[in-house]
């Protein structure tokens, strides 16, 4: 490990010398400097000196930018971000942002989308749902430009989930329904439709408008003719009925029965807890009135 650091330091020194001895007429020294910075960063990476490696990758990226070699610069920023990931999330996000900007400029939309999604994942790990949502949204747009339908759907599903967590239910419902409609056109994606409609239905339930829930269930049946035969449909219909009756026990029983076969993800549990709490409050209000 020590020899990696020594080698890295020596390469970094040579790179700095190349930079300072740069002749204004020729870019060859800049090219050499960029390459040496890259090699130096790789040595520090092998020594697990992540911050140092990342800063050298950034220097390499700056050299590439001066040479107007944008693709190489973007890749160097990505390498820097992957080193920063080990120590500083904010550093990683900053570098990935620069990479996304460059990839977008040079028309590499799928690469830009991929790294935009990666930024979203980092924010998600940091529990920053608002930022995560905006980056997933950006990734979806870029994937759409790059004509990668599956990736668009995957990103939109995450956006809808974050919208639901941020209590922007109407937006989440719209996204889920659009995805379901889109998926029905494909023999491979149509099997995921019931899941999207379930998520949309759960968002409808949280809003607590019984008429809207009933209308939605009818609309979902028209959208996907097989939906009325699924466990998801039965689950939504039973939940809807228990909300209409104000029966908290029935609501709990229905959820537990469904959960015993298909375990619910934590964000769905949170939504259902919100519904249950609202039902409890309503029940208490009714008791107070009587």
């Amino acid at each position: 490990m020590g020899d990696h650091i020594a080698k890295g330091q020596e390469l970094a020194k040579r790179a700095e010398n190349k930079l300072h001895a740069c002749c204004p007429l020729f870019g060859s020294n800049l090219e050499d400097a960029a390459e040496l910075f890259h090699k130096s960063a790789t040595s520090f990476k092998l020594a697990k000196s992540w911050d140092k490696a990342a800063s050298l990758f950034v220097k390499s990226a700056k050299c590439h930018l001066k040479l107007d070699s944008k693709y190489d610069a973007a890749n160097a920023y990505v390498d820097a971000a992957h080193c920063y990931k080990k120590t500083s999330t904010s550093g990683a996000i900053s570098c990935l942002n620069k990479a996304v900007t460059i990839f977008t400029e040079i028309g590499r939309h799928i690469m830009a989308a991929k790294y935009s999604k990666e930024i979203g994942e980092l924010y998600e790990l940091d529990q920053d749902i608002e930022h995560a949502r905006s980056y997933y949204e950006r990734a979806a747009e870029l994937f759409e430009i790059g004509d990668a339908a599956t990736s668009v759907i995957q990103c939109k599903v995450k956006v809808a989930q974050f919208c639901a967590q941020l209590q922007q239910y109407q937006k989440a419902i719209k996204i889920y329904e659009d995805i379901a409609r889109q998926s029905l056109d494909s023999n491979l994606l149509k099997y995921g439709v019931r899941g999207h409609l379930l998520n949309s239905g759960l968002c409808q339930l949280v809003q607590g408008d019984f008429v809207a829930i009933t209308n939605s269930l009818e609309r979902y049946q028209d959208l996907d003719l097989t939906f009325s035969r699924t466990r998801e449909y039965k689950f939504l219909a039973d939940l809807s009925a228990s909300i209409d009756e104000g029966d908290v026990e029935k609501f709990t029983r229905v959820v537990k029965e469904f959960n015993s076969i298909t375990p619910l993800e934590s964000w769905k549990s949170t939504l259902l807890l919100r519904v249950k709490d609202a039902m409890k409050v309503k029940e208490m209000e009714d008791d107070d009135l009587t």
Binding site: A148, A149, T150, Q154, L189, Y191, G192
Partner: peptide, 9 residues
């Protein structure tokens, strides 16, 4: 199936 769709693309 989603992965297959992605792979096809």
């Amino acid at each position: 199936l989603v992965m297959l769709h992605h792979q096809g693309e």
